[in-house]
Amino acid sequence: MSEGQRQEGGGWPLWEVFVRSRRGLSHTHAGSLHAPDAEMALRNARDLYTRRAEGVSIWVVPSAAVTASSPDEKDPFFEPAADKAYRHPTFYAIPEGVKHL
């Protein structure tokens, strides 16, 4: 197959991949990939993101279905949260042995 025929993702839709690394944790965004449909996206995700035994469960979501906040809206979205220390649980001591808090 010549170089010219190898287009990015073969014109296939883009999928976002979420992997749960072990029981008790939530699915975490691992990356994205191209696939012709959801079933193939799952299989490609298995090959790309879990081949070193990183996961027990995979979700794939069409990238087009994700609505993202825009960088232009960064200030109105996030800045008001920064100067209100009382919103953060910083005044508690975290018990020993509690991970993932």
Binding site: M1, G9, G10, H34, N44
Partner: peptide, 14 residues
């Protein structure tokens, strides 16, 4: 390096 798409490259070499 020759499969139709990168994802298949990885699948076949896996």
């Amino acid at each position: 390096g020759n499969a139709p798409v990168l994802e298949e490259d990885v699948a076949l070499t896996n």
